[in-house]
Simulated assay, not measured.
Amino acid sequence: MHRFGAAAVLAAAGLLLAFPTGASAAPADTGEVVVFRTEVAQLTTYDSPRGCHKLPADAHVLVNRSDRPVRVYGDPFCLTPGLTVQPGYGAHVVPGSGSFSG
Results as ranks from 00 to 15, higher is better:
10 L>K: 04
19 F>W: 11
36 F>L: 13
45 T>K: 12
22 G>T: 05
97 S>N: 10
29 D>E: 13
59 A>P: 07
80 T>D: 06
79 L>W: 13
82 G>D: 00
78 C>A: 08
28 A>I: 09
61 V>G: 03
46 Y>M: 05
52 C>T: 11
15 L>A: 02
73 Y>A: 00
57 A>C: 02
14 G>C: 05
29 D>Q: 14
53 H>Y: 11
3 R>V: 15
39 E>I: 15
8 A>R: 01
92 H>S: 14
42 Q>K: 08
20 P>Y: 11
78 C>Q: 01
86 Q>A: 09
78 C>P: 02
78 C>Y: 07
56 P>F: 08
24 S>M: 12
37 R>P: 02
44 T>F: 14
17 L>P: 00
50 R>P: 13
83 L>M: 07
100 F>P: 03
91 A>C: 10
65 R>Q: 10
11 A>C: 06
48 S>P: 01
70 V>L: 15
80 T>Y: 12
47 D>G: 04
93 V>I: 04
98 G>C: 03
15 L>T: 04
81 P>F: 11
17 L>R: 00
5 G>I: 13
15 L>I: 09
3 R>H: 13
70 V>M: 12
6 A>T: 11
16 L>P: 00
11 A>T: 06
45 T>N: 05
101 S>K: 09
58 D>A: 06
98 G>K: 01
89 Y>N: 09
51 G>F: 10
51 G>W: 07
17 L>S: 03
19 F>D: 00
32 E>M: 07
21 T>L: 09
47 D>R: 13
